[in-house]
Design a protein around this nucleic acid. Structure first.
Lengths: 192, 192
DNA sequence: TCGATTGTCTAGCGGTGCTAGGATCGCGGC
DNA sequence: GCCGCGATCCTAGCACCGCTAGACAATCGA
């Protein structure tokens, strides 16, 4: 059995390599540059090897998205934990979210802009995605205000953050006032 | 001179045909289906003709985006005009925005998701884009609240709307509660 | 040691955006 | 009315894309 186990380990390692390389390439040169040929060359295997791990390019994007969701959830929780009081927590959460989107644009795109073939907002949604939403909910739930469903409030707050993240990065909004926009958002949306 | 004028008219007409056809095709089958070959076939010309009007596919997307921006600005103003009082106006504006995004997903993508090679939030931003933002500003400026810059407030409100529009359409948020999210957004963000 | 299975690669399919170069059409001057 | 010429358009092709069939090699169990 040891032989088979070793092979499975190697296989799993190569799969991680594929995902990590795809992410790296996407962050360096954008998702357009992540072609199956280039990706195969970087991992030093031929193209068809990719298809023995993933159904296609879409699934590779999905794998990067899941990785990113887990990472984001961890960062959001760390930011919230480091702040005292509801107001500071919400502000820290919002900053951490936008910060993640800015530092990992390709990963953020994989999660929310591109089609990674993932299910959202339903039962068979992968765990990391649900958990990232849960990380938002944990902090935002306590400032939803009376009579407002925490989940609904989190959705609205998240949408606002997502809008700020994408519009700023795409050059649709001036980057200079980003911090002031966050403060306004927190001041108005959260019930403190 | 008449001959030359006629030629220019025909040329302008064909350019409109290209943009309208691209939009139509994108709304019917998504932007992925808008290939230069298919587009050329639909307008009953060969591919290179497209390149005598536009630098490339990106510019065609940009042209659709400009068309959409003008349309959206008109719809936003109409919705605001039909409502009485600040609160009703803001709600109507928000609904009109989300409605436009839902009814014209491909055009909305051309404006805010895809790269149409357009400049945003700077001096050489095309007029229709500035005007669409102005349409938002006209209604939202009056509910920004004291001491809050109307432009900044509009940016935040717009970001929230954009987030709701994209996340809902991409299946990232359950469509059922869309209306309740809008109400919550208006209640919290606007100072009435 | 041999046969079978697993794994990997080469080569190729139909598609993409875009362009070079040749053919054809219609204009203005004689 | 005819003809040369410039504008206009199309055919054919480039390099690249995602993806896959089938040949080949390496490794395993008997």
């Amino acid at each position: 059995m040891s032989v088979q186990e070793r092979k499975e380990r190697e296989r799993a390692g190569r799969e991680r390599l594929i995902v990590a390389t795809a992410r790296e390439l996407a962050e360096q040169q954008g998702w357009d540059a992540v072609t199956t040929r280039r990706l195969a060359e970087r991992i030093e295997y031929s193209q068809p090897v990719l298809y023995s791990h993933f159904r296609g390019k879409r699934e590779i994007i999905g794998a990067v998205a899941l990785l990113g969701a887990a990472e984001m959830a961890a960062e959001l929780r760390a930011a919230a934990r480091a702040a005292d009081g509801p107001r500071a927590r919400v502000t820290a959460l919002a900053r951490a979210y936008l910060d993640f989107a800015e530092r990992n644009p390709a990963v953020y795109d994989a999660m929310f802009q591109l089609d990674g073939g993932l299910a959202f907002a339903q039962e068979d949604t992968p765990e990391p995605l649900k958990d990232a939403f849960a990380a938002l909910l944990e902090t935002l739930g306590e400032v939803a205000g009376e009579g407002v469903h925490p989940g609904l409030f989190t959705e609205v707050f998240w949408a606002a953050l997502h809008g700020l993240a994408t519009l700023t990065r795409a050059g649709r909004q001036p980057p200079a006032d980003a911090e002031r926009r966050v403060e306004l958002l927190v001041d108005r949306l959260a019930v403190l």
